[in-house]
Design a protein around this nucleic acid. Structure first.
Length: 498
RNA sequence: GGCGCGAUGACGGAACGGUCACGUAGAGGUCUGCAAAACCUUUUAAGUGGGUUCGACUCCCACUCGUGCCUCCA
């Protein structure tokens, strides 16, 4: 059984081989916590959750880091503009620290709602400032850095293979029409490792710049000691306050927790040409070894056939789906119907279709409560189904194929006599579905109460006596309890009214 | 403008050089005391135009449209 992924690094589907037997180090670019994530953001985390689950299903011990970008992600990736966190703080009249705390908590609660496995390490960029400064120090020692009036920059021309990862055409970029206002940058692709707090500006999040990182350094402050912006800092000194560049954060956290080379790095396709290219440049310039062996990138989710953007007014949040009566797991099912590499198209009709499919699954799962024997003589839920599900997902997170396998197995079960179904293998199959696809089938399909069971038995007796009036009355009673009965030739099977 | 990605039925969405999954919705039917479910059937599905081939949805080229990055957003 082999795991295969479409690897951006090589440009084709590669068989997965981990660095250490039975262990996988995984880094996922996490959210910038300045606002609520929209459903497109969540789609990515669902894909990577499937990645974690399938690695675990293949008996890998997964060590995963997901960063929380709580400082330094500027409005523009060109190292211009304001910090998103500071923008959020102004918008809501709070400090950047409060903004980060609020949206981090919201993100984690969203993860739980979508049944996403929480990574072993959820790291905040602000808690890794010394590591980031140390990375700059090492880059400086190797002469990859230079200083401008507004920060410390990475000289991408010193990293020969800079353009390789994203197949960039740097000369075209250079001759492009883009003319920047502030270009003390030596090359258009150079990026900030550390930005100085602009003179006269008060930032909530800033740290002193270690003297040895400065070209004219004579400042003597503790590395990465957070400074209260309200304290009286002389203007000259405040110029040397600063904050990390967005790209640096990921490199520092990934390497300090997972080592110089990690197995898998994931992110959105938009991160390929800038963010991930820069991560590679920073990390590999320091270590001299490959930063990540496998890079997986998710495509974007469209809404109503077009991109998600605020100006189009089609930015939906998880809370919007819940308000319209959907369960977050319905959305998860919707995402699992497609492959991470393709654009999906979200509409409420499509979400309803996914919800209906999931409801049908739940009613099949409920059959387990209605089987008395553990040894149905026909193996309607064969062991092989579990294996087939895993193999489908092993093939580049092929969840659509896995769903098909479940559909086919479930339709056999739904068509079978209760007495013929093997309870143990049905439950085992449900467990596999839940562990690999995370759809919470078992948890969402509890048994019905004794009272309802009594009514079903009474109705069965009435039916045997062909007392249709009583039978129908009892069926109505069950409907009051949101239980639907379907009579087959052999059984009366209850379902949830979903 | 530069560098990419994509286009499959009503909708979502796979695989595959020859027989076109699966799901949701609609229609018809079988079954049924009724209902529901299940099962069966269902309108010549591949953006357009060429090419390669005995044969292309699948490979190649062009175009159109959509979309991504460079220029906020996974």
């Amino acid at each position: 059984m082999t795991l295969k992924f479409n690897n951006t690094l090589t440009g084709h589907i590669d068989e997965f081989v981990s660095l250490k037997d039975g262990k996988v180090s995984l880094y996922t670019c996490g959210p910038t916590v300045y606002n609520y994530p929209h459903i497109g953001n969540w789609a990515a985390y669902i894909y990577w959750d499937i990645l974690v689950r399938i690695l675990m299903a293949n008996s890998y011990d997964v060590n995963r880091v997901m960063n929380i970008t709580d400082v330094g992600h500027l409005v523009s990736d060109a190292d211009e503009g304001e910090d998103k966190l500071e923008v959020g703080a102004k918008r809501e009249g709070k400090t950047a620290w409060e903004i980060a705390e609020f949206y981090t908590a919201d993100f984690l609660s969203g993860m739980k709602k979508l049944n996403l496995i929480i990574p072993q390490h959820v790291t905040k960029a602000t808690e890794y400032i010394p590591q980031q400064l140390d990375l700059i120090r090492q880059l400086k020692e190797k002469s990859f850095t230079y200083q401008t009036s507004d920060g410390i920059y990475y000289d991408t021309s010193k990293f020969i293979q800079y353009a390789d990862f994203a197949h960039l055409d740097l000369t075209a970029q250079k001759s492009g029409t883009r003319v920047e206002v502030s270009s003390e940058k030596r090359n258009p692709s150079d990026f900030a490792l550390w930005k100085f707090t602009p003179t006269g500006e008060k930032r909530d999040m800033q740290w002193s710049t270690p003297a040895d990182l400065l070209e004219d350094g004579s400042w003597n402050m503790e590395d990465g000691e957070p400074q209260d912006s309200n304290s009286q800092i002389p203007i000259a000194n405040s110029q040397r306050m600063g904050f990390p560049g967005w790209h640096l954060e990921c490199s520092a956290m990934a390497m300090s927790l997972l080592g110089n080379t990690i197995d898998i790095h994931t992110g959105g396709i938009d991160a390929i040409p800038v963010h991930h290219t820069n991560e590679i440049a920073q990390s590999e310039a320091v270590t001299g070894v490959r930063f990540a062996n496998y890079w997986l990138h998710n495509n974007f989710l469209k809404v109503n056939g077009t991109k998600i953007s605020k100006s189009l007014g089609n930015v939906y949040l998880l809370s919007d789906l819940i308000e319209k009566g959907f369960n977050p797991i319905d959305f998860r099912m919707f995402i699992l119907q497609g492959n991470y590499r393709n654009e999906g198209n979200f509409t409420f009709d499509n979400l309803t279709a996914a919800k209906n499919r999931l409801n049908n699954w739940k009613n099949t799962a409920a059959i387990r409560h209605q089987i008395n024997s553990t040894d149905g003589n026909k193996s309607v839920a064969p062991f092989a189904v579990s294996q087939a599900i895993i193999e489908a997902v092993n093939d580049d997170l092929g969840t659509p194929a896995a769903l098909k396998i479940v559909d086919e197995a479930f339709s056999q079960i739904a068509a079978a006599k209760l007495a013929d179904i093997n309870r143990g293998s049905l439950i085992q199959m449900l467990e596999t579905i839940d562990s690999v696809l995370g759809l919470q089938i078992i948890d969402s399909t509890p048994d019905i109460g004794d009272e309802a069971k009594q009514i079903i038995m009474q109705r069965r007796q009435a039916r045997d006596q062909k007392d249709w009036a009583v039978s129908d009355k009892l069926r109505d009673q069950l409907l009051q309890m949101h239980i639907v009965i379907r009579d087959t030739a052999d059984d009366s099977i209850w379902e949830y009214e979903l």
